[in-house]
Protein backbone atom coordinates (compact mmCIF):
# COMPACT_ATOMS: atom_id res chain seq x y z
CA UNK A 1 0.00 0.00 0.00
CA UNK A 2 1.27 3.43 -0.89
CA UNK A 3 1.76 5.64 2.14
CA UNK A 4 0.40 9.16 1.59
CA UNK A 5 2.29 10.53 4.62
CA UNK A 6 5.75 9.84 3.24
CA UNK A 7 7.42 12.67 1.32
CA UNK A 8 9.68 12.32 -1.71
CA UNK A 9 13.32 13.07 -1.00
CA UNK A 10 14.39 16.27 -2.76
CA UNK A 11 17.36 18.63 -2.64
CA UNK A 12 17.43 22.38 -2.47
CA UNK A 13 19.10 23.37 -5.72
CA UNK A 14 18.94 27.17 -5.46
CA UNK A 15 17.53 29.84 -3.16
CA UNK A 16 16.43 33.30 -4.33
CA UNK A 17 15.57 36.18 -2.01
CA UNK A 18 12.38 37.77 -3.32
CA UNK A 19 11.80 40.94 -1.30
CA UNK A 20 13.54 43.79 0.53
CA UNK A 21 12.35 42.52 3.90
CA UNK A 22 14.16 39.26 2.99
CA UNK A 23 11.37 37.19 4.51
CA UNK A 24 10.32 35.73 1.17
CA UNK A 25 12.59 33.20 -0.49
CA UNK A 26 12.04 31.00 -3.50
CA UNK A 27 13.34 27.45 -3.25
CA UNK A 28 14.20 25.50 -6.37
CA UNK A 29 13.96 21.80 -5.62
CA UNK A 30 15.16 18.81 -7.59
CA UNK A 31 14.05 15.24 -7.01
CA UNK A 32 16.68 12.81 -5.76
CA UNK A 33 15.07 9.95 -7.68
CA UNK A 34 14.16 10.10 -11.33
CA UNK A 35 10.97 8.08 -10.80
CA UNK A 36 9.66 10.58 -8.24
CA UNK A 37 10.03 13.42 -10.71
CA UNK A 38 7.92 11.41 -13.16
CA UNK A 39 5.33 10.58 -10.52
CA UNK A 40 4.92 14.21 -9.47
CA UNK A 41 2.59 15.43 -12.22
CA UNK A 42 0.71 18.60 -11.37
CA UNK A 43 -1.21 21.55 -12.78
CA UNK A 44 -1.18 25.18 -11.63
CA UNK A 45 -3.31 25.76 -8.53
CA UNK A 46 -2.13 22.72 -6.61
CA UNK A 47 0.02 22.71 -3.49
CA UNK A 48 2.42 20.37 -1.72
CA UNK A 49 3.75 19.79 1.78
CA UNK A 50 7.41 20.66 2.19
CA UNK A 51 9.17 19.04 5.12
CA UNK A 52 12.35 19.74 6.96
CA UNK A 53 13.08 16.60 8.92
CA UNK A 54 13.05 17.26 12.64
CA UNK A 55 11.15 20.52 12.25
CA UNK A 56 7.92 19.53 10.54
CA UNK A 57 5.89 19.99 7.39
CA UNK A 58 3.85 22.86 5.97
CA UNK A 59 1.73 23.38 2.87
CA UNK A 60 2.87 25.69 0.07
CA UNK A 61 1.40 26.55 -3.29
CA UNK A 62 3.46 25.25 -6.21
CA UNK A 63 4.98 28.34 -7.83
CA UNK A 64 6.59 26.61 -10.80
CA UNK A 65 4.63 25.59 -13.88
CA UNK A 66 4.56 22.03 -15.22
CA UNK A 67 6.09 23.54 -18.37
CA UNK A 68 9.24 24.30 -16.37
CA UNK A 69 10.54 20.78 -16.44
CA UNK A 70 12.87 19.02 -14.04
CA UNK A 71 12.35 21.06 -10.88
CA UNK A 72 9.79 22.60 -8.52
CA UNK A 73 9.61 26.14 -7.17
CA UNK A 74 8.09 27.23 -3.87
CA UNK A 75 8.12 30.73 -2.45
CA UNK A 76 8.09 30.74 1.31
CA UNK A 77 7.42 33.51 3.80
CA UNK A 78 9.33 33.19 7.05
CA UNK A 79 6.79 32.92 9.90
CA UNK A 80 7.24 29.90 12.18
CA UNK A 81 9.19 26.74 12.80
CA UNK A 82 9.31 25.13 9.38
CA UNK A 83 9.58 28.31 7.36
CA UNK A 84 12.40 29.64 9.58
CA UNK A 85 14.33 26.43 9.14
CA UNK A 86 13.87 26.60 5.37
CA UNK A 87 15.09 30.18 5.37
CA UNK A 88 18.17 29.15 7.33
CA UNK A 89 18.99 26.39 4.85
CA UNK A 90 21.73 26.40 2.23
CA UNK A 91 21.53 24.92 -1.27
CA UNK A 92 22.32 21.20 -1.20
CA UNK A 93 20.21 20.45 1.83
CA UNK A 94 17.98 17.37 1.66
CA UNK A 95 14.34 17.99 2.44
CA UNK A 96 11.03 16.31 1.57
CA UNK A 97 8.07 17.10 -0.65
CA UNK A 98 4.67 15.42 -0.39
CA UNK A 99 2.17 15.97 -3.16
CA UNK A 100 0.89 17.26 -5.45
CA UNK A 101 -2.18 17.92 -3.32
CA UNK A 102 -5.54 19.59 -3.81
CA UNK A 103 -7.38 20.53 -6.97
CA UNK A 104 -6.18 22.78 -9.80
CA UNK A 105 -7.50 25.95 -11.35
CA UNK A 106 -10.42 24.92 -13.62
CA UNK A 107 -8.27 24.49 -16.74
CA UNK A 108 -10.97 22.77 -18.79
CA UNK A 109 -13.28 25.71 -18.30
CA UNK A 110 -10.57 28.32 -18.83
CA UNK A 111 -9.76 27.27 -22.38
CA UNK A 112 -11.12 29.81 -24.86
CA UNK A 113 -11.72 32.40 -22.15
CA UNK A 114 -10.21 35.75 -21.29
CA UNK A 115 -8.34 35.34 -18.03
CA UNK A 116 -8.35 38.03 -15.33
CA UNK A 117 -5.88 37.50 -12.51
CA UNK A 118 -6.13 39.39 -9.24
CA UNK A 119 -3.60 38.96 -6.48
CA UNK A 120 -2.11 40.63 -3.44
CA UNK A 121 0.93 39.78 -1.34
CA UNK A 122 2.76 36.49 -1.43
CA UNK A 123 -0.31 34.45 -2.42
CA UNK A 124 0.79 35.25 -5.98
CA UNK A 125 2.76 31.96 -6.05
CA UNK A 126 0.25 29.68 -7.77
CA UNK A 127 -0.63 32.52 -10.14
CA UNK A 128 3.01 32.74 -11.19
CA UNK A 129 2.54 29.09 -12.05
CA UNK A 130 -0.73 29.73 -13.94
CA UNK A 131 0.63 32.69 -15.94
CA UNK A 132 3.87 30.91 -16.81
CA UNK A 133 1.82 27.97 -17.98
CA UNK A 134 -0.52 30.04 -20.16
CA UNK A 135 2.33 32.06 -21.67
CA UNK A 136 4.25 29.05 -22.87
CA UNK A 137 4.20 28.58 -26.65
CA UNK A 138 2.04 25.46 -26.75
CA UNK A 139 -0.60 26.91 -24.45
CA UNK A 140 -0.93 30.62 -25.24
CA UNK A 141 -3.28 30.24 -28.22
CA UNK A 142 -5.77 28.33 -26.06
CA UNK A 143 -6.63 31.43 -24.03
CA UNK A 144 -7.97 34.90 -24.84
CA UNK A 145 -6.50 38.00 -23.26
CA UNK A 146 -4.63 37.69 -19.96
CA UNK A 147 -5.15 40.67 -17.66
CA UNK A 148 -3.28 40.70 -14.36
CA UNK A 149 -3.46 43.00 -11.35
CA UNK A 150 -0.85 42.22 -8.74
CA UNK A 151 -0.22 44.32 -5.66
CA UNK A 152 2.03 44.48 -2.63
CA UNK A 153 2.61 46.84 0.29
CA UNK A 154 5.51 48.56 -1.45
CA UNK A 155 7.67 47.93 -4.54
CA UNK A 156 10.29 46.04 -2.54
CA UNK A 157 7.66 43.47 -1.61
CA UNK A 158 6.72 42.47 -5.17
CA UNK A 159 8.05 39.00 -5.90
CA UNK A 160 9.59 37.53 -9.06
CA UNK A 161 10.96 40.91 -10.20
CA UNK A 162 12.81 39.59 -13.26
CA UNK A 163 9.78 37.72 -14.52
CA UNK A 164 7.50 40.70 -13.88
CA UNK A 165 9.85 42.81 -15.99
CA UNK A 166 9.66 40.35 -18.86
CA UNK A 167 5.87 40.16 -18.58
CA UNK A 168 5.63 43.96 -18.67
CA UNK A 169 7.40 43.85 -22.01
CA UNK A 170 5.31 40.93 -23.25
CA UNK A 171 2.32 41.83 -25.45
CA UNK A 172 0.71 38.48 -24.64
CA UNK A 173 -0.16 39.68 -21.15
CA UNK A 174 -1.51 42.93 -19.74
CA UNK A 175 0.15 43.39 -16.36
CA UNK A 176 -0.74 46.10 -13.85
CA UNK A 177 1.39 46.38 -10.72
CA UNK A 178 0.27 48.36 -7.71
CA UNK A 179 1.55 49.21 -4.24
CA UNK A 180 -0.31 50.35 -1.13
CA UNK A 181 2.07 53.16 -0.31
CA UNK A 182 3.53 55.67 -2.76
CA UNK A 183 7.31 55.28 -2.68
CA UNK A 184 9.65 58.29 -2.93
CA UNK A 185 11.05 57.61 -6.36
CA UNK A 186 11.34 55.37 -9.35
CA UNK A 187 7.93 53.72 -9.14
CA UNK A 188 6.13 53.64 -12.46
CA UNK A 189 3.22 51.39 -11.43
CA UNK A 190 -0.01 52.35 -9.71
CA UNK A 191 -0.60 53.28 -6.10
CA UNK A 192 -3.69 51.90 -4.42
CA UNK A 193 -5.28 48.79 -2.97
CA UNK A 194 -5.81 45.86 -5.32
CA UNK A 195 -9.65 46.02 -5.41
CA UNK A 196 -9.59 49.74 -6.28
CA UNK A 197 -6.97 49.31 -8.97
CA UNK A 198 -8.94 46.42 -10.40
CA UNK A 199 -11.89 48.79 -10.72
CA UNK A 200 -9.69 51.28 -12.63
CA UNK A 201 -8.29 48.61 -14.92
CA UNK A 202 -11.90 47.69 -15.58
CA UNK A 203 -11.44 44.35 -17.36
CA UNK A 204 -14.40 43.10 -19.37
CA UNK A 205 -16.33 40.23 -17.85
CA UNK A 206 -17.38 39.13 -21.33
CA UNK A 207 -16.34 35.49 -21.84
CA UNK A 208 -13.96 35.90 -18.88
CA UNK A 209 -12.86 33.96 -15.83
CA UNK A 210 -11.19 35.63 -12.85
CA UNK A 211 -8.61 33.95 -10.62
CA UNK A 212 -8.25 35.54 -7.18
CA UNK A 213 -5.48 34.75 -4.67
CA UNK A 214 -4.63 36.90 -1.69
CA UNK A 215 -5.17 37.47 2.00
CA UNK A 216 -8.79 36.94 3.21
CA UNK A 217 -9.37 40.69 3.50
CA UNK A 218 -8.32 41.34 -0.09
CA UNK A 219 -10.57 38.54 -1.32
CA UNK A 220 -13.48 40.01 0.61
CA UNK A 221 -13.12 43.42 -1.09
CA UNK A 222 -12.31 42.06 -4.53
CA UNK A 223 -15.44 39.97 -4.96
CA UNK A 224 -17.91 42.90 -4.97
CA UNK A 225 -15.77 44.62 -7.62
CA UNK A 226 -15.81 41.55 -9.86
CA UNK A 227 -19.57 41.16 -9.41
CA UNK A 228 -20.01 44.82 -10.31
CA UNK A 229 -17.91 44.25 -13.43
CA UNK A 230 -20.48 41.61 -14.39
CA UNK A 231 -18.61 38.39 -13.59
CA UNK A 232 -20.77 35.35 -12.91
CA UNK A 233 -20.32 33.83 -9.47
CA UNK A 234 -19.20 30.64 -11.22
CA UNK A 235 -16.49 32.51 -13.05
CA UNK A 236 -14.85 33.97 -9.96
CA UNK A 237 -12.23 31.46 -8.90
CA UNK A 238 -10.75 31.78 -5.42
CA UNK A 239 -7.89 29.90 -3.82
CA UNK A 240 -8.07 29.47 -0.03
CA UNK A 241 -5.27 28.92 2.48
CA UNK A 242 -6.76 27.44 5.65
CA UNK A 243 -4.31 26.00 8.10
CA UNK A 244 -3.47 22.42 7.15
CA UNK A 245 -1.59 19.42 8.41
CA UNK A 246 -2.35 16.17 6.61
CA UNK A 247 -3.35 17.66 3.26
CA UNK A 248 -5.39 14.51 2.55
CA UNK A 249 -8.75 15.14 4.20
CA UNK A 250 -8.20 13.30 7.46
CA UNK A 251 -6.80 15.57 10.18
CA UNK A 252 -9.92 17.72 10.19
CA UNK A 253 -8.59 21.29 10.53
CA UNK A 254 -8.91 22.88 7.12
CA UNK A 255 -12.67 22.60 6.61
CA UNK A 256 -15.01 25.33 5.46
CA UNK A 257 -18.41 23.85 6.17
CA UNK A 258 -18.48 20.35 4.76
CA UNK A 259 -15.65 21.05 2.33
CA UNK A 260 -12.04 20.31 3.10
CA UNK A 261 -9.77 22.93 1.58
CA UNK A 262 -7.02 20.33 1.15
CA UNK A 263 -8.97 17.88 -1.01
CA UNK A 264 -12.08 19.73 -2.22
CA UNK A 265 -9.96 22.87 -2.74
CA UNK A 266 -7.85 24.92 -2.40
CA UNK A 267 -9.57 26.26 -5.52
CA UNK A 268 -13.28 27.10 -5.23
CA UNK A 269 -15.72 29.19 -7.23
CA UNK A 270 -17.41 32.08 -5.50
CA UNK A 271 -20.71 30.33 -6.25
CA UNK A 272 -19.51 27.43 -4.09
CA UNK A 273 -18.12 29.58 -1.29
CA UNK A 274 -21.24 31.68 -1.09
CA UNK A 275 -23.13 28.68 0.27
CA UNK A 276 -20.48 27.80 2.82
CA UNK A 277 -19.85 29.42 6.21
CA UNK A 278 -17.27 32.22 5.97
CA UNK A 279 -14.74 30.22 8.00
CA UNK A 280 -11.64 31.04 5.97
Amino acid sequence: MENPYIPYPVSIDAITIENDAKDLKTFKLTFDREEDLKAFTYMPGQFAEMSVFGKGESPFGIASSPTEEGYLLFTVKRTGTVTKELHNSEPGRKIGVRGPLGNTFPWDRMVGKNIVIVSGGFAFTTLRSAITYMLCKEQRSKFGSITTVYGARDPGELMYKDILKSWEANTNIDLTLTVDRAPDNGWHGRVGLVPNVLKEVNPSSENSIALVCGPPIMIRFTIPVLLELGFNKDDIIISLENRMKCGIGKCGRCNVGSKYVCIDGPVFTYAELEHLPAEY
Binding site: Y5, G54, K55, G56, K245, K250, C251, G252
Partner: peptide, 22 residues
Amino acid sequence: HCFDITDEENRKGEGYRIRTWD
Protein backbone atom coordinates in the same frame (compact mmCIF):
# COMPACT_ATOMS: atom_id res chain seq x y z
CA HIS B 1 -10.54 11.76 14.40
CA CYS B 2 -8.72 15.11 14.22
CA PHE B 3 -4.98 14.98 14.62
CA ASP B 4 -1.80 17.00 14.42
CA ILE B 5 1.49 16.00 12.83
CA THR B 6 4.70 17.21 14.45
CA ASP B 7 8.39 16.35 14.47
CA GLU B 8 10.39 15.51 17.56
CA GLU B 9 14.16 15.45 17.54
CA ASN B 10 16.91 14.58 20.01
CA ARG B 11 20.37 16.15 20.24
CA LYS B 12 21.90 13.57 17.95
CA GLY B 13 19.65 14.66 15.12
CA GLU B 14 17.51 11.52 15.25
CA GLY B 15 13.85 12.19 15.16
CA TYR B 16 10.31 11.06 14.74
CA ARG B 17 7.39 12.41 12.82
CA ILE B 18 4.43 11.73 15.06
CA ARG B 19 0.74 12.20 14.86
CA THR B 20 -1.22 13.01 17.97
CA TRP B 21 -4.90 13.56 18.65
CA ASP B 22 -5.88 17.18 18.25
